[in-house]
Design a protein around this nucleic acid. Structure first.
Lengths: 357, 357
DNA sequence: TTGAAAGCGCTAACAA
DNA sequence: TTGTTAGCGCTTTCAA
């Protein structure tokens, strides 16, 4: 109680100080700026939003007044009046997954020098949660929406259609886009990674996967396709979990795999964390990489190019995906819906698959 | 042009479909819900915001109408009318730095089951940029503000004071808090890490640092203090860069260090990326860790506990920092300003410093 | 417990 | 080029 009333005193003091110094507690509005500059509020608004529609002298007066009063526009009022936001909504499955932070970095870069603001939603890999969050972000309608993956609920699609904002789905490819799609083929990428292992002489190849979201499933499918094509797909070649991916999981899954599939001589990993985990476990068990065992990662996020031996990985265009998606929203055309941009991938070939044959 | 008009046609089609299906394009408002339920708009508002102030029968009617129309509140209107937001602003230096995504995860967790929404600002380690972004986020006033670090500009402090929202500074400790502080002592943590190396028999210890923000500087100061205390601080023991931290930098800085300081037998690293980079470079150069060289990382972000040998690191309470800060804002008391919460740290002792003496 | 009136700060549409 | 008027959808205040 004492702390409380002491705090109140403090607040009152603050107010007094501000009064003495001539600050106003209430934030200045367009009207205040207008009075200061001797013009109407709407002129101030125009001077700020579309300077070209206002005479030079007017603009100078307004700018001076804005500066003097420390005017900052009230976003809510602007949004309410114009039914236009300057925010773009990005829904990602997890903010602690580097894959998505790379994408976010790309979006951020594309939106630099733009009035657009990012609003990030964390879906936790759950389409229902995506729907719930998105619903609350859709009123008022944002400038655009970027969605990771293609697995939106029917209700989400309906919402998005009725709101009518530009939508970009990223990370994957598919027919039936909501708006536009920017991504790459996870299945093809996995096929390429698996073939790379095959070309380097590995035959008993396993697949390791954590966080088995739909894109991971596609990678698994690609692995299976590539192996089946050459008649080498083994029954016990696959070890997956739905838990989040981390380095430790790599070791765990590796051990699970080789227990059931002792002849295994290489793994294609769902992502780089797992690949690193496998490398470390091989080191612990005295398994020589790449001669005894080959490793291929996915996403090529960084560490794979530094460890010993360096680990081959499928490089995916995460940052570009973000940049392209951001630019699409920024250009903001609703036109040409249905466009799909395939940004491809490439194999970053390194020591972990360079077997001496 | 053709694509354009084709698109217009498509839009019209969409509208027609929606009409036929009985959807309205315009989002329903409180008035619409009120009409549907046979009550006034304000009653609907109350039924949603403070259900206890409304009779049970009324609430049921309103809820049914809300559901039927798919009503979603307009945030901007709500905010404008009440001058209250349900957003909390978090300013972090970089969204691609795992340190901050861990903190964000903590905040997110604290805010689960809350109406509060996260608004994230990326400062790029620049207080001026922080000021600029924050200014635009401060009107209308958010429910609370969380700031990484203590290095706000004078202008930022003034803004924050005049807006009067709860402020929590995180990641560090200091006197002169804007509101509350949640963090740990970077200097003490570095002292502890350095002493740990000393206790394990290392004598010619170096310091590696990337992204030398103020907290990194404090870690450096801690290292210097611990070394000076025992009279072992060498002139060339420090290799730092202002570039972003990554595994590759670890190797680069390590090479720079040992060139100038050949007797060096251990490093205290500014963070885990660098520590990993050093480990890998040692492997490449045939330097045995921990016997020939000791390594201590910082933050204990994950991979250090899996690599071979496992790397000692100073574990910092990143997630908790986020959770505590989030809870503080959520409780939302402006009272008890000036509180500082020191969440401490601990040494995760592992193989990389376990020298056989 | 419910409702009527007023207005939050801004911008669209129109007028001068 | 500038100003006037009328809301945007909601909540506050006050009255019933």
């Amino acid at each position: 109680m004492i702390a409380q009333s002491f705090c109140n005193l403090f607040q009152i003091l603050l107010i007094m100080i501000n009064k003495i110094w001539g600050f106003r507690m209430a934030k200045p509005t367009l009207v205040d700026v207008g009075e200061e500059a001797g013009v109407s509020a709407i002129t101030v608004s125009r001077a700020l939003r579309s300077p070209e529609k206002v005479s030079d002298s007017m603009r100078a007066k307004v700018e001076a007044a804005v500066k003097k009063l420390g005017y900052v526009p009230n976003q809510s009022a602007s949004t309410l009046a114009s039914s236009k936001t300057n925010s773009i909504v990005v829904m990602i499955p997890s903010i602690s997954n580097n894959v998505f932070t790379d994408v976010l970095a790309g979006i951020t870069e594309a939106l630099k020098d733009t009035r657009l603001t990012l609003q990030i939603g964390n879906t936790g890999y759950d389409p229902q949660e995506e729907e719930r969050i998105l619903r609350s972000f859709l009123n008022p309608a944002p400038t655009g929406v970027i969605l990771a993956g293609l697995e939106q609920t029917a209700e989400t699609r309906k919402m998005l259609a009725s709101v009518g904002v530009p939508v970009v789905q990223i990370m994957d490819l598919g027919d039936q886009p909501i708006g536009k799609i920017v991504g790459f083929s996870h299945e093809d990428a996995a096929v390429a990674g698996t073939r790379h292992l095959l070309e380097n002489g590995y035959r008993n190849i396993g697949f390791l996967g954590a966080q088995m979201d739909p894109r991971s499933q596609k990678r698994l499918a690609g692995f299976q396709r590539a192996m089946r094509e050459v008649g080498l797909l083994q029954e016990h070649a696959i070890a997956v979990t739905n838990r989040p991916s981390d380095v430790q999981q790599g070791a765990t899954l590796f051990n699970k795999l080789v227990r059931r599939f002792p002849d295994c001589d290489a793994v294609f990993c769902n992502n780089d964390d797992l690949a690193l985990g496998v490398l470390f476990e091989c080191q612990r068990r005295g398994i020589s990489v790449p001669d005894d065992f080959g490793i291929c990662g996915f996403n090529d996020l960084g560490t794979t190019s530094e460890c010993v031996p360096k680990v081959t990985s499928v490089r995916t265009p995460l940052r570009q995906i973000g940049m392209v998606a951001g630019q699409m929203i920024n250009k903001g055309e609703m036109t040409e819906t249905g466009i799909t941009v395939d940004l491809g991938f490439e194999i970053s070939e390194r020591e972990s698959t360079r077997r001496k044959i």
